[in-house]
């Protein structure tokens, strides 16, 4: 497995070696499509990723978890990084940690990332340091919200007031990392049946809120139309 980054950077291969290389890549859980990328491009991307802090074993782990890192446009990577640094205010060290543990953030739409960050920051009252430790971005946003709002409605999670740092809230790390069974048993004090129903109800609530907003928007547009006439 050690050879993989080197392999990725091989110069153009003859068909036989190419086939062998493809088989190796597959074994490593990587996409043989990588072989179709120009060597220059591979080298560049590996360089970029290293510069972002994914050095040594980190790069290897990140790429094997998330081979698309070699395929997304550079702009997307840069946008994600800018967002994490400039708008979410992660320190360089924290950013390295985030990329090392959740490389897939580099593939995300900045808007989605921002949304998830803001949710954890404002709605859940969690600081950057704890987000990094919890591997926040590994959990799909919908799942995070399901768990958080479930706790909240059960009276087991309170949004901290401004300036308040100590709360009896469960740790973000546990909310994000516990398997659902343990989350229900030890944090939410609930049964799977209740959680299943809750998720369905919450999804419907949202759907209807969205629809209402759309309707209100539509009303405004109609009114605007009236004004035009």
């Amino acid at each position: 497995a050690r050879s993989s980054p080197a392999l990725l950077l091989q110069p153009r291969l003859d068909p036989e070696r190419r086939e062998a290389a493809a088989a190796q890549l597959l074994l490593l859980g990587l996409s043989p499509a990588l072989l179709r990328l120009p060597t220059e491009r591979l080298r560049e991307r590996a360089e970029e990723l290293r510069r972002l802090g994914l050095d040594g074993g980190r790069l290897q782990r990140a790429v094997s978890r998330c081979p698309q890192l070699f395929h997304v446009p550079r702009k997307r990577l840069e946008a994600a990084v800018r967002l994490l640094r400039e708008r979410c205010l992660f320190t360089a060290e924290q950013l390295r940690e985030v990329l090392g543990t959740c490389p897939a953030v580099l593939l995300e739409e900045p808007r989605t990332l921002h949304h998830q960050f803001q949710y954890a920051y404002f709605r859940m009252g969690v600081r950057q340091k704890e987000m990094v430790k919890a591997r926040l971005f590994r959990m799909p946003f919908a799942e995070l919200r399901n768990r958080h709002i479930f706790l909240e409605r059960r009276g087991l999670y309170e949004t901290p007031h401004k300036g308040q740092t100590q709360t009896s809230n469960p740790k973000l790390k546990d909310i994000v990392q516990l398997p659902v069974k343990d989350f229900l048993a030890s944090l939410a004090l609930s049964t799977p049946e209740e959680y299943e129903v809750f998720k369905k109800l919450l999804a419907r609530e949202e759907e209807e809120e969205e629809k209402e907003e759309e309707d209100v928007d539509a009303q405004y547009t109609e009114e605007d139309d009236d004004l035009d006439r």
Binding site: G155, S190, L201
Partner: peptide
């Protein structure tokens, strides 16, 4: 109600706050 309903309160509270 937490005091009165004890361990049942989280379930009841979630019920009250979701669609009936």
């Amino acid at each position: 109600y937490g005091l009165h309903l004890g361990a049942l309160w989280p379930s009841v509270r979630a019920g009250l706050l979701c669609e009936q």
